[in-house]
Structure formats: C-alpha cells, structure tokens
Amino acid sequence: MKRKDPDLLLFHAPLLRQGMTTPKAMRDVLYALAPATLASLWFFGLSAALILGACIAGAVAAEWLFAQREARGESLRDASGILTGLLLGLTLPPGLPLWMAFLGGFVGISLGKAIWGGLGHNLFNPALLGRAFLLATFPIAMTTWVPINVDGGFLDVYPGNLALPFMQAGADGVTAATPLGMMKFEHTVTPLADLAFGKVSGSLGETSGLLLLLGGIFLWLRRDLDWRIPVSILLTVLVFSAALSMVDAARFPTPLFSVFSGGLLLGAIYMATDPVTSPITPKGAWIFGTGTGVLVMLIRVFGGLPEGVMYAILLMNAATPLIDRYTQPRVFGRGAESK
C-alpha cells in the first residue's frame, strides 16, 4: 500500500487481509541483518559467531525461563528473542568474554521485555537495554576494542572471548581505538571508504555501513519499517554535524563521518525503528527521529563518551508514550478540542 500521510485513516469493505504478522516481520529483520552478520564473521572470524551465539542463547534462555509454562514454545516461535540476541551481539566488541555476552542477552530479555509483560509491552528496546546493562557493569571489557582480523584465519579466536565465567578477560591483548574514539580523544579522522566498507575497529555489526544500509533498503521495500525514523535521524545528524563543521572544521567531524562511524546506522535502521518502542503516528516518528539525532550529536560532541547512539535511543524510547499522546490524531467527527 502506497499512500500519503493521511490525517485520518478510513477503510471500507472489502477489508483485505494483510500478510503482515509479527513472526514474518521479525524474520524479515533477520534476513536484512544477514549481510552485516556475514560481514562480521568475515572481519572477526569465529569470535563473531561465538559472541552472537552466546547473546542469542542468553536471550532465548530468558525468553524460555520467564514464559508461562503452557506458552513456552510459543514465545520462541515469533523469533523476537533471537532477533534481540542478534541485535545485541552486533553492538558488542568482538573481544568480549562469552559469559558477558550471554548475560547481556539474558538481562536484555528479562529486564527489557519479560518484566514488562512480554512482546509489545516493553518501554525500552531490549537489545539496547542489555547493552546498557553490560556497559554499566563491565565498563572496561565493553570499551576494549580489538583490531579487525584481516590476516588471521577464520578459526583464530580472540583470547578475551574464552574467559571463564565471572573472570576477567585476562592480560591485555592488542587493542585498537574506534574511529569515534580516535576522533574524540586523538583528533584523528578515519578515511570514509574504510568506514563504509568496514575496515575499521568497532563492535561486530557497526563496522560496515554500506551493508547495514542495504538491509535497511530491503526492510523499507518490504514495508517492515517506518522509513521516517531512520531518515529523520540521519538527516538530523547530517545537518547538525554540517553546522558544526562549518563552525570549526578541524575540531568537529564531517557530516559523512558522523553518519558512517559508530553504531549510528545500526541503531537508526534496526533499533530505533522497533515498532514496540517507537511512536506509531507519522508525526511522532519525525519527532522521535529528530530527537534521537540531536541527542546522538550532543552526546558525541559535548558528552564524556565517544558514542551516544544507545543512550539517545533509550532516552527517546522513554519519551515515546508522551510523543504518542501528543501526536494522536483527533477522533473523527469531534472538534479540535477533543483527543
């Protein structure tokens, strides 16, 4: 269905059955993430597979544990737990101990979804909640980035991955700074081509901008996502950083660097658009996206952290009920006063 933003949605018979169901939408997102996931396997080898697997296992375990006994299989079937685990895994650093990845998936589902009442009732994006928990709990492990594994074989595993449960990642291996970290703390700019194709250090899924965009276009073609949210986030970031680099080009990043670095594409396309935690009205989606973009730039440029996509989306998640309330279309036939 292609239509303009109507002020009022009117349907009349025959009411066509739509093929869109929750499991189908979830599976579409999984397909859309496949290229980026494969890229992470290419860049980080077996480590990526282990981390993603641990996250998904944690998420599914929580999903199973907190389900009603009769509905245990049911809540797994819509693949939302797997998707949460995969999304979380893609935001983690490749050298993270596996037990932390498992814990993140478990906490993401239990605190981010189960205690709210399950799928559709949660206020915050479960994957990002899991990541926020991990970042607050293990700040060092979560900000230790390893260089990408270009020359090593596929089977080379980062030693940090195999730390025993509750134990540290052990002696410092080779570490590398992310492009945003280099920008913020050392004022070194990474070439754009490296950012777009993923030849940079970073979390599993944020390295390759182009593949993430590709998946986003697939989702948009399948009508699985509200295009207004990623578009408004990316536009806001572009405009904001263009304005900043006009002020002082040496100090602030260029607009394209801002878009392709860090977790912005991953967050804007796959996490901010989570239909449960983003506004339902078109106007609300614009507000949500713009707010997220502004927060991302504020945190990146003026905050103490190099990356702010996660906190920006979580904060806007919290504002979603409010946005929904203020952008509700008025009831047909009533005056402008009524809501």
Binding site: P97, M100, F133, A136, T137, F138, P139, A141, A163, F166, M167, Q168, A169, G170
Partner: peptide
Amino acid sequence: DGALFGVKLFGENFEPWVIMILPP
C-alpha cells in the same frame, strides 16, 4: 567487588560487576 566484608572470594581475576556498587 568479588568480596564479602572486604575478603576477596574469587581471587584476583574476578571481573567486578561495577553496576552493583553504583545506585542502579
């Protein structure tokens, strides 16, 4: 902190859950 009453329980390699000491 991996400890009880200041006594380390799990040895030096324990990875502390920083969030547990913080208000959240």
